[in-house]
């Protein structure tokens, strides 16, 4: 029994490490599109962590929210911003 506890704890440690590293990278990524991708990875890493911590309910929510919706919203926001910039450049070219 003790052996299996230890195994699961190593698994947890790996997941915690993964979460910590992706979170740090996400916080340090200056560019929003890239950050959205890293956030999606963070969401996935958190999903894994929650699964090994025996929390499938939270893992499922996190998969939907953290790995899909939030990065998607960031992408859409960036896309809108980019479109504004493109319009701006077009206008400037016309002048």
């Amino acid at each position: 029994m003790n052996g299996s506890y230890a195994t699961s704890e190593y698994l947890i440690a790996v997941c915690v490490l993964l979460v910590t590293v992706t979170a740090t990278v996400a916080a340090l990524t200056p560019e929003p599109v890239r950050q959205a991708l890293v956030l999606a990875m963070l969401g996935t890493a958190l999903t894994l962590l929650f699964t090994v911590l025996q929390a499938p309910d939270v893992a499922l929510s996190q998969l939907g929210v953290g790995a899909a919706v939030t990065p998607l919203l960031i992408m859409l926001t960036v896309r809108r911003v980019r479109r504004s910039s493109t319009q701006q450049r077009d206008r400037e070219r016309q002048r």
């Binding site: 996400a26 916080a27 200056p30 956030l39 963070l42 958190l46 953290g66």
Partner: peptide, 18 residues
């Protein structure tokens, strides 16, 4: 970049789940 600020807020929040 304010969009990044919001993203970082989401990162800070994930600490509470952990």
């Amino acid at each position: 970049n304010i969009i990044r600020t919001v993203g970082c807020l989401a990162v800070a929040q994930s600490s509470t789940y952990v």
